[in-house]
Write a protein that binds this DNA or RNA. Structure first.
Ligand code: SF4
Ligand code: SF4
Lengths: 133, 133
DNA sequence: TTAAATACGACTTGTGTAGTCCTATTTCAT
DNA sequence: ATGAAATAGGACTACACAAGTCGTATTTAA
């Protein structure tokens, strides 16, 4: 609970790695071996990051990945959103239809939790990959 | 991912409720009906909050629960810790033995994630139940 | 003595996480 | 052309956790 998924961690490690080698093209094999990450899992993470336009893929032999923008313009929140495929929500009613929560109408904590949600967004948005290198 | 559990939400709703009726004794039945919470689930949540000394139980007929301290001295973090039974950790290495993570030695993001962890703790610690009433 | 309440363990069901396996496609280099 | 190196992506398994249900024991006021 309240834990980042391994996929997100792998994504952060990979992006930070590419930034650390000055945005030179990097492969899944290279990264997975260097950080002991299962290559199949990392491969799918990279594909999601590509679809999310955080990195750019270069297919074929001698291919790999490079960053799609500066490391100072990629936040932890960006990585979370792209990999999870949805907005981060501290409670059900923030990430899906509020009506899905059977308690919604009687709920007395959604507003205060909204404040917490907002503060968490500030934290994740303000931490950029460039600070991690 | 990064979502509070229903147990925690139920705990917050219950504690807020007791505070809202000026710390008068309140029963599981009363709270579960008022907020449409499954009573069995709420019952176990209340037992955990009791063991965690956030609320006090009064057994037997005419029994129920009251707060064990002022609503301004119960934080959202307190509720999370007591109900989850462990410290909140944004990554495995913050809530259990770091060695459990097979990547730990090669991990390049644990320090930056530590900063995020610290900021999240600030957010959850600063929000008190008294602000929710 | 009875009824109302908490205490607590066992169980089921559903969802999500992490990882594996297999195949297709793209592209560079020979 | 061909083969090797790389990304693309679907199908599947194993496991852990979340949420809820059920049954029973214990406590205590009236
Ligand atoms: S409505 Fe209340 S209970 Fe339902 S998800 Fe939002 S916060 Fe949680
Ligand atoms: S060590 Fe790195 S990868 Fe392992 S849990 Fe901590 S942060 Fe996540």
């Amino acid at each position: 609970m309240l834990k980042l998924s391994k996929k997100v961690e792998y994504g952060l490690i990979a992006i930070r790695h590419i930034a650390s080698v000055n945005n030179q093209i990097s492969t899944v094999k290279e990264i997975s071996e260097k950080y002991s990450i299962p290559s199949d899992v990392l491969a799918k993470v990279m594909q999601k990051l590509t679809k999310g336009k955080l990195i750019t893929s270069h297919q074929g032999a001698m291919g790999g990945y490079t960053l799609a923008r500066g490391a100072d313009q990629i936040s932890v929140m960006n990585v979370i959103s792209v990999i999870e495929g949805s907005q981060m929500g501290i409670a059900q009613c923030f990430s899906e239809e509020p009506e899905n929560c059977s308690i919604y109408l009687n709920c007395t904590i959604k507003n205060p939790l909204g404040k917490i949600q907002h503060n968490l967004e500030l934290v994740f948005n303000s931490m950029k990959v460039s600070e991690i290198v």
